[in-house]
């Protein structure tokens, strides 16, 4: 669990990934701070900070005495945010690498189509 970013951010992203993938459906409870701490062997304060990040973004909400639950609309909002970030996060680095290799945009299109075909016909 280390890609160089602050650990609380990584915890937040991991829970967000779970919500986006449907592992934590809306309205269900996410693991408690204690569970997350014990599982990852991470300082509980750091876990709390990561969870709070998601509360601030409206993805999680606290039910007193029960724990943290996934808010309604959390998955949709996460997917929207990721779609918006898709170009920056994936397409730009792809094009930068293509340029470095001397590939044209058309070449890239071709490779993308070919790769998609390979995956759909295993």
């Amino acid at each position: 669990m280390d890609d160089g970013r602050p650990i609380f951010q990584q915890i937040a992203d991991q829970i967000a990934d779970g919500i986006a993938a449907g592992a934590y459906p809306e309205g269900t409870q996410v693991p408690s701070t204690t569970e997350l701490s014990a599982f990852h062997r991470i300082n509980p304060a750091t876990v709390g900070k990561g969870v709070n990040l998601l509360v601030e973004r409206g993805l999680l909400h606290k039910r007193r005495g029960l724990g943290m639950f996934v808010s309604d609309g959390a998955r949709a909002s996460l997917l929207a945010a990721r779609t918006a970030a898709f170009a920056r996060a994936y397409v730009r680095p792809l094009l930068a690498e293509a340029r470095a290799l001397g590939l044209s945009t058309d070449d890239v299109h071709k490779i993308v189509d070919e790769t998609a075909d390979e995956r759909s016909t295993p």
Binding site: T33, A38, R41, N43
Partner: peptide
């Protein structure tokens, strides 16, 4: 060592 780390964070979560 993993036992220690796990017990430490679990206990700290319950009793800061």
């Amino acid at each position: 060592r993993q036992v220690f780390y796990r017990q430490l964070v679990t206990d700290l979560a319950e009793h800061p």
